[in-house]
C-alpha cells in the first residue's frame, strides 16, 4: 500500500487557509471578522492512497475538500498537484489550465438526491463531463457511459432513466460513474455514504475500494464516521475547528492516539459489540464546539480539553509537528518530543 510509495506525493497542501469574511452593513461592507473554516493546513496525499479527513460538523472538512478542488478560492496557501507534466499549484491556476487539470480531479458528493440534476437522464449525467471536455464523438461516448455504468454495478439498460427512479445507493453509483468518466487520478469523496442506509453503505464502500484497486485512484475521503474512515483509509487526518490536530496512519491512530481530541473522538464511537461496549471507558467531552467565527484563544480545543494546561494551551496555538515518524500532532503535551 502507501508504504512503498511513500515518497510519491500526488497532492501537496501547504498552509492552506480558507476564510469566509463576516461583514456588516449593506452599502459599506465593514469587515468585522472571519470564519476560519480551514486554518493553515499542511499535508500530503500520496499517490494511490486513501487519506481520511474526519471531524465533527462544522470542523471545516468539507470546506477543505472544496478549497483543494478550487470550488472555493482559497484565502492563502498552496495546493500542488503533481503528475507527469510536473508540479502545478492549483491555487495559482485558472481558466483553461485549471479546466484541463479538473479532468484529473473529481468529486463525489454527500447527497445523492440533491447532486444529480432531476431533469437529466442517467446517460446524460454520466456523459456530461465527456461533452464538456469535448472527448470522443457521441457514439463513443455512449459506449463509454455503458461501460461506466457496468463498472459501478448499474445495469446499462437504465441509461435513459431519470435519477428519481433510483434508490439512494444507486444514485450514489451514478455520481461515482460521473466522477470516473474522465479517468481521474484523484477523487475527493465528500461524505459519500452518510445519507445511505447501513446495508447500502457497505455496497458503496466496497465499490469505492474496488475502483481504487482497478484504476489506481487516490482518494481524499471526508466523513464524520470514524469507523468508516478507519476502514477505508490508509492514513487519517483529524480536524477540529478548522485545524488538523492529528495526522497518521489509520492503525496507528487507533492504537496510539496522541491528541486528547482524537482520544475522546475514538472513545465516543460506539462499537457494535456489547461485550466490548460494556467494558469501554468513555471520555465524555464537556460542552459544545465553539463557533468558528470566534475560536478560543490559544489551542482551539482548549475549552473542552481534559488535559488542558493553564497558561500554555490558552495562550498560543500549538505547532503541528511530526513527533514520531509519520505521526503528526498539534498539542503541547508533545512539545519537545522528537521523532
Amino acid at each position: 500500500m502507501a508504504k512503498e510509495k511513500e515518497k510519491d506525493v500526488l497532492l501537496h497542501v501547504e498552509n492552506l487557509k480558507m476564510y469566509f469574511p463576516i461583514t456588516k452593513g449593506i452599502i459599506f461592507q465593514k469587515h468585522v471578522g472571519d470564519v476560519k473554516a480551514a486554518d493553515d493546513l499542511t499535508f500530503d496525499i500520496y499517490r494511490g492512497e486513501t487519506l481520511g479527513l474526519v471531524g465533527e460538523s462544522g470542523c471545516g472538512k468539507s470546506t477543505t475538500g472544496r478549497a483543494i478542488l478550487q470550488l472555493y478560492t482559497p484565502t492563502a496557501g498552496k495546493v500542488i498537484f503533481r503528475d507527469a507534466d510536473g508540479d502545478r499549484d492549483l491555487a495559482q491556476t485558472s481558466g483553461e489550465t485549471l479546466r484541463r487539470l479538473r479532468r484529473q480531479i473529481q468529486m463525489i458528493f454527500q447527497d445523492p438526491y440533491a447532486s444529480l440534476n432531476p431533469r437529466m437522464t442517467v446517460g446524460s449525467i454520466v456523459s456530461e463531463p465527456l461533452e464538456v471536455h469535448n472527448i470522443d464523438n457521441s457514439a463513443k461516448r455512449l459506449k463509454r457511459v455503458r461501460e461506466l455504468l457496468n463498472i459501478v454495478g448499474l445495469n446499462p439498460y437504465f441509461i435513459n432513466r431519470y435519477p428519481h427512479e433510483f434508490s439512494g445507493g444507486q444514485r450514489q453509483r451514478i455520481g461515482i460513474a460521473r466522477a470516473l468518466a474522465l479517468n481521474p487520478d484523484f477523487i475527493v469523496c465528500d461524505e459519500p455514504i452518510s445519507a445511505l442506509d447501513v446495508s447500502i453503505q457497505a455496497q458503496v464502500i466496497n465499490l469505492l475500494e474496488d475502483l481504487q484497486d482497478k484504476f489506481g485512484l487516490t482518494y481524499l475521503f471526508i466523513a464524520h464516521d470514524l469507523s468508516v474512515v478507519r476502514h477505508i483509509s490508509d492514513r487519517i487526518a483529524v480536524m477540529y475547528l478548522g485545524k488538523i490536530v492529528e495526522l497518521t496512519e489509520s492503525d496507528e491512530l487507533y492504537a496510539n492516539p496522541l491528541h486528547p481530541y482524537t482520544e475522546a473522538l475514538l472513545s465516543a464511537v460506539p462499537i457494535p459489540d456489547p461485550a466490548i461496549e460494556k467494558k469501554r471507558q468513555r471520555i465524555i467531552l464537556e460542552g459544545d464546539v465553539p463557533s468558528p467565527a470566534n475560536p478560543p484563544q490559544g489551542c482551539n480545543f482548549s475549552t473542552r480539553c481534559p488535559k488542558f494546561i493553564e497558561g500554555k494551551c490558552d495562550t498560543k496555538d500549538p505547532a503541528f509537528q511530526e513527533v514520531q515518524p509519520g505521526h503528526w500532532v498539534a498539542c503541547y503535551l508533545y512539545e519537545g518530543v522528537h521523532k
Binding site: S167, Q170, V198, A202, V228, H231, P272
Partner: peptide, 23 residues
C-alpha cells in the same frame, strides 16, 4: 447476520465488508 457483518468496526482492521446486495 448481514447487517452486523456489513458494519466497519473501529477496533478491527477488517478486510472487505460483507454487503447485503439489492434493495
Amino acid at each position: 447476520h448481514g447487517l452486523i457483518a456489513s458494519l466497519p468496526r473501529l477496533d478491527q482492521r477488517s478486510g472487505k465488508l460483507e454487503s447485503i446486495e439489492g434493495l
